[in-house]
Amino acid sequence: MSLPSFPFAEQAQIIRSNQRDIFHLSSLREQTEAVLRAWLGTRWLSRWDKEIGLFVKLLYYGLTIGQATQTLGEEYTGIWMHSVQTDMQPSRHLRVALILLPTLPSYIAAKWGSALPQDSKLTSLLRRVPSFLEIVAEINLAIFYLRGTFYHLTKRILRTRYISAVPPNPNARPPSYSLLGVLLAVRLIHRLVVYLRSLRVEDEGPASAKGKRHADGTHETYVDDTTVSSMLGPYDPDSQPVIPAEEDERTILDVSSIPSAQRESRNCTLCLEERTSSCATECGHLFCWPCIIGWGREKAECPLCRQSLSITKLLPIYNL
């Protein structure tokens, strides 16, 4: 008598499981940020944004994969992780690798990339790591849509698949996602062509590149012949002294003559101090210029209304 075997999970189950995990991760992060914002303030939250994201992922996957149990998405779809090499449940070391490999490399690259000197070659290399990982993940996803195996790149490297506790329905044909794989392949080819064109433009010299800076979307915004990022420059808000509002040189107002009741409404919601070097976002909210610059480099959204935020479109205000 042969022992019963479980079938491999279908593509739809794996995709639905991943969507549920993303939803629960997002919900857990929002609740964590709400608690930390109430305790420590928005400015502290923006400073430690990367660490909070890493902590939430390690907590979620550590309490599920790390304990050899299902994630909420896997439990929802009735699938289990299964090691192809051992034909058993993933071992402890394999589970640790499944937790750390998808989270640590991108965090380390982002953290070191912002801490190292801006003009060093290592900084330039580290800044390319997230883009490289994104492209490799898209290639793996295209292969998954075409062949139906290994939704995540880490699981492909570690040879970990899913088995299903739900028997397949012999009267129903599983959906095909081959078209999505083809579309992803077309997108990757387009990105490759754009990248090769940008390299050719750089080889031809700055004279020919000057008129093509915005053609392929790979170059940043220029003011005359100067990049916006170079004008903004590196900025560490925690290393800067707090300037009293009375000493703000970037306003035409006599702050000391403003009634105290009105001055209370001039506080910046990021630093919780009276606003200095005031600037407005596209959505109309006011912040200190250093505060919103530091926030915008970490999160491209307004801290109050969550609308999209571009630091190149901030408007300095001199009379508020």
Score class of each variant (00 low, 15 high):
Ile163Leu: 02
Gln13Asn: 04
Ala261Ser: 14
Cys288Glu: 01
Val186Cys: 14
His190Asp: 12
Val56Ala: 01
Ala12Gln: 14
Arg306Val: 08
Thr154Met: 04
Lys299Asp: 10
Arg128Phe: 13
Tyr318Asn: 11
Arg29Thr: 07
Ile311Asp: 01
Arg37Gly: 10
Arg95Pro: 04
Glu10Ala: 03
Ser229Tyr: 05
Leu188Tyr: 01
Gln89Pro: 14
Ser229Asn: 09
Glu273Tyr: 11
Phe132Cys: 12
Ala110Pro: 08
Glu74Trp: 02
Ala185Glu: 06
Glu51Arg: 15
Glu298Lys: 11
Val193Met: 07
Phe8Asp: 05
Gly296Pro: 02
Pro303Phe: 00
Leu100Ile: 09
Leu72Met: 08
Arg275Gly: 06
Gln70Leu: 01
Tyr195Lys: 14
Trp39Phe: 15
Arg213Val: 01
Ser208Asp: 06
Thr69Asn: 03
Asp236Arg: 10
Arg16His: 08
Ala137Gly: 14
Leu104Asp: 00
Ile99Lys: 00
Cys271Gln: 02
Cys283Met: 06
Val182Pro: 00
Val35Arg: 14
Val255Trp: 08
Glu247Trp: 10
Leu180Lys: 13
Ile157Asn: 03
Glu249Cys: 09
Val228Trp: 11
Pro303Asn: 00
Leu192His: 11
Leu125Ile: 07
Asp238Pro: 04
Asn140Asp: 13
Thr226Arg: 15
Gly233Pro: 07
Arg173Asn: 12
Ile139Phe: 10
Ala245Val: 14
Pro234Glu: 00
Glu301Ala: 12
Asp254Lys: 08
Pro168Glu: 02
Val166Ala: 15
Phe8Ser: 10
Thr281Leu: 04
Leu141Lys: 09
Arg95Phe: 01
Arg20Gln: 12
Arg197Asn: 11
Asp225Thr: 05
Thr86Ser: 06
Leu72Arg: 03
Cys279Ala: 13
Arg16Cys: 13
Phe287Asp: 00
Thr71Asp: 00
Pro316Ser: 05
Asp87Ile: 03
Val96Gly: 04
Asn171Ser: 12
Asp238Arg: 08
Gly148Glu: 06
Tyr76Arg: 03
Arg16Ile: 14
Gln85His: 12
Trp48His: 14
Val136Pro: 13
Pro130Ser: 01
Leu153Pro: 02
Ala38Arg: 09
Glu274His: 09
Arg156Ser: 07
Leu180His: 15
Leu270Ala: 03
Val182Tyr: 06
Thr218Gln: 06
Pro303Lys: 00
Ser164Asp: 00
Pro167Thr: 10
Asp236Ile: 03
Ile139Arg: 09
Asp216Gln: 10
Ser308Ile: 11
Arg275Trp: 09
Trp39Asn: 04
